[in-house]
Design a protein around this nucleic acid. Sequence first.
DNA 1: CGGGCATGATACTACCCGGTAGGTGCAAGA
DNA 2: TCTTGCACCTACCGGGTAGTATCATGCCCG
Lengths: 217, 217
Amino acid sequence: MADMPDAAEPESGARPAARVEGRDAILEAAAAAFTERGYTATTIDDIADRLGATKGRVYHYYRSKADIFLDIHRYAMQRMLDVVSPIARSPLPPAARIAEMVRAHALLLMASFPFQRVSVQGLERHLAGRVTERQRNALDGVIRMRDAYEALFIGVLEEGVATGAFRPLVARRAVKPILGSLNWLTVWYRPRPQEDAGAQAAIAEEMVEFVVRGLRP
Amino acid sequence: MADMPDAAEPESGARPAARVEGRDAILEAAAAAFTERGYTATTIDDIADRLGATKGRVYHYYRSKADIFLDIHRYAMQRMLDVVSPIARSPLPPAARIAEMVRAHALLLMASFPFQRVSVQGLERHLAGRVTERQRNALDGVIRMRDAYEALFIGVLEEGVATGAFRPLVARRAVKPILGSLNWLTVWYRPRPQEDAGAQAAIAEEMVEFVVRGLRP
DNA sequence: CGGGCATGATACTACCCGGTAGGTGCAAGA
DNA sequence: TCTTGCACCTACCGGGTAGTATCATGCCCG
């Protein structure tokens, strides 16, 4: 088992020989298509059309539609973890740390909207049953990443309750409405061409305000 | 135009001669199937199987899968409006009124879970483009109901800001994380056989607590 | 008791879509 | 100039699924 890939960062489901840039182009087009039509209603031809290509190109990089879907989830969760876990481990007091985490989460949701929207809308339902063993492993990996992400928030909540920074609450329960108010962004928010840092920052601050107040003693 | 159906309560998309009980059975089975697999991945045979019947029965009551989908949304929104709008119009002070509305919303989400889950997960995406004119009208009706529902919350928020019961906020923005924390229930909550009023009430209280504190001055 | 109608089953059709097989063009080395 | 291999395309197949056309079975009412 010495030459196993790093278990903490599951590997891509793309075909082994695939170039990274080619693979990323597929993922970006697929994320946009899934965002617009949903997983099942999106056809491989939809994805190819967005690239000005044909199915051949898509299948040159990925074995199946499910593999593309899983890779999008993996990318999205990895980016979220990369941004937020340093904050969760920082020496800030719990209230300030949660505020930073919420801000970063909201901003990243808007910044890489198609990927994050696909990620937030869930995956188990779409792949129920009809997966190969390799895909099942990838699915489990994504679910573990999601649990680890939620655990970052639960950890800070528990610390804040212990120090008295937050009201008494059950961290495992309280984390749901927090992530809910954040992730609901993917339902109502639509990236607009002109709108930039300003408007996105205002939305993020609204989230921070709401969450931080909801936790105060 | 004197004999138009009540515009505020759009009529069912079922076949005109359909019995109400027969139609409701279809809707219930369809809501369960859509909840499990999603709209596109659910087949008419899936719905029929849940009834111990065949496609013939389903098509006896509904013209198309999209009509069933739209009717589920209509039902779900109508029930939510029926429960929450009396509260929104009650003479309670804003803070107490919002608390009651949040509680009622959360409890109804859990009580009629399959319908509400289908409703919350949205509909525009699944029907984009491929609808008849009649379906387009039904779709617009559902969207109007959804906007009216959100307006109930916005109204109470504005009143609370005016009376000083809530912190200064832009109601149109602040309503998003509120409904987000609530509707996120449909993502993580799973109804369990034994769990009853007690556990559901506890979850609802968590929501109430979080929202009310998030609004305080 | 017989006709009509609501209710539903059976047996199709036409089409769409994921996936595959094999080919083509082109760039880089020798 | 020949060769090799990558990147991608064309053409196709097979299974699945929405929707339809038609037939069977009761149940109510005269």
